[in-house]
């Protein structure tokens, strides 16, 4: 390796870093320098979670279980329908993110804006529940929560699971 090789590495890497800086600062902003990658703090994601999103999250699965048992909350499972069929939280309604627009009109007529809504998806690594919860909040729903641990944590806890037999 020559001196020129080392200079070249320095120049190429510097150019790449400057390009990355300009790209993420001006052309496509949206990524924070620090993400939320600690599962103990809620759903892991690239953007910081200490925003409005995080206040919706319920981290404690026991609290979610109490909510489920009370049957006062509308529980939305936003995973794909076929995965919902294989097992879901008791009383949960299938409301796949992929089919959000199709399912929305009926949901709007069958619920009130003040209805208590709990949304969950696959796991602590899944942000679909946040996406749906965010959309519902934008539509005017005032009581929307997200179960951070999702179905995986529910299953790991050994809590009751409902299945749709075909």
């Amino acid at each position: 390796m020559t001196r020129k090789d080392v200079t070249g590495i320095f120049l190429l890497v510097s150019f790449a870093l400057v390009t990355a800086f300009f790209y993420h600062s001006f052309l496509s902003p949206g990524m924070a320098l620090q993400g939320q990658w600690d599962p103990d703090q809620g759903v892991v994601k690239a953007v910081p979670t200490r925003d409005a999103d995080s206040s919706m999250e319920i981290l404690n699965p026991d609290v979610v279980r109490q909510m489920v048992q009370k049957k006062e909350w509308i529980i939305l499972d936003v995973r794909p329908g076929e995965i919902y069929d294989q097992g879901h939280l008791p009383h949960a309604v299938s409301f796949p993110l992929m089919a959000f627009d199709e399912a929305l009109p009926q949901f709007l007529t069958s619920t009130q804006r003040s209805s208590d809504i709990l949304v969950y998806c696959a796991s602590i690594e899944c942000t679909d529940s946040h996406t749906v919860a965010g959309r519902l909040k934008n539509l005017g729903y005032t009581s929307v929560k997200v179960f951070s641990g999702g179905f995986r944590q529910w299953q790991e806890k050994g809590y009751e699971i409902e299945k749709n037999e075909d």
Partner: peptide
């Protein structure tokens, strides 16, 4: 965790360049 976003933002540009 602190390095993940930074890696995701810079590594692809190093590959590209």
């Amino acid at each position: 965790g602190a390095s993940i976003n930074l890696m995701a933002m810079t590594l692809p540009f190093i590959e590209l360049v």
